[in-house]
């Protein structure tokens, strides 16, 4: 049976208790709201995109530790990254959270220089299938914000 320690890694709890990038941006040119109607998690992502790079990000909302920690980590992971790299990161993250993600050798959390950084701590969530949606929420909201930005 999956253990609670795998879900609630210290780094996740740290992001939950002290969320990074938790602010409403004064200047932003993209954003979206996301929610999981089933559990009531809510996330708002605001972006400042300049010359194809996310130069600032704000992640606000309320919900369970997994959704909020995932949003906090996501902000750190995508800040100062070019949009195409953000897309790759998003795919990588979603791959990691899907059942097939287990086969990705690049995601060994013990491996030095792990691609997704702190985010890899969220791998344990996969053992708690009902919680995967919580971890995904900030990322799907980010994708939506980028989609709106690109189509507008």
């Amino acid at each position: 049976m999956a253990s609670l320690e795998e879900l609630y890694r210290e780094v996740i709890l740290d992001h939950y208790r002290s969320p990074r990038n938790r602010r409403v941006l004064e200047r932003s040119n993209a954003g979206a709201d996301g929610s999981n109607p089933l559990c009531g998690d809510e996330v708002r992502v605001d972006l400042l995109i300049e010359a194809g790079v996310i130069t600032d990000i704000g992640v606000t909302g309320h919900g369970c530790s997994i959704s909020q920690a995932s949003g906090s980590m996501m902000g750190d992971a995508v800040k100062a990254k070019a949009l195409d790299e953000v897309c790759r990161l998003t795919d990588r993250f979603k791959g990691m959270m899907s059942i097939e993600g287990a086969a990705d050798p690049g995601l060994d959390p013990e491996r030095p220089g792990a691609v997704l950084g702190d985010l890899e701590a969220l791998q344990g969530v996969r053992k708690f299938p009902v919680r995967i949606k919580c971890a995904d929420l900030p990322w799907t909201t980010l994708e939506e914000a980028l989609g709106i930005y690109e189509s507008g």
């Binding site: 609670l4 879900l7 559990c39 919900g63 530790s65 997994i66």
Partner: peptide, 9 residues
Amino acid sequence: IHAHDIATI
């Protein structure tokens, strides 16, 4: 403590 976390624990 969110209800979802409580239920999992």
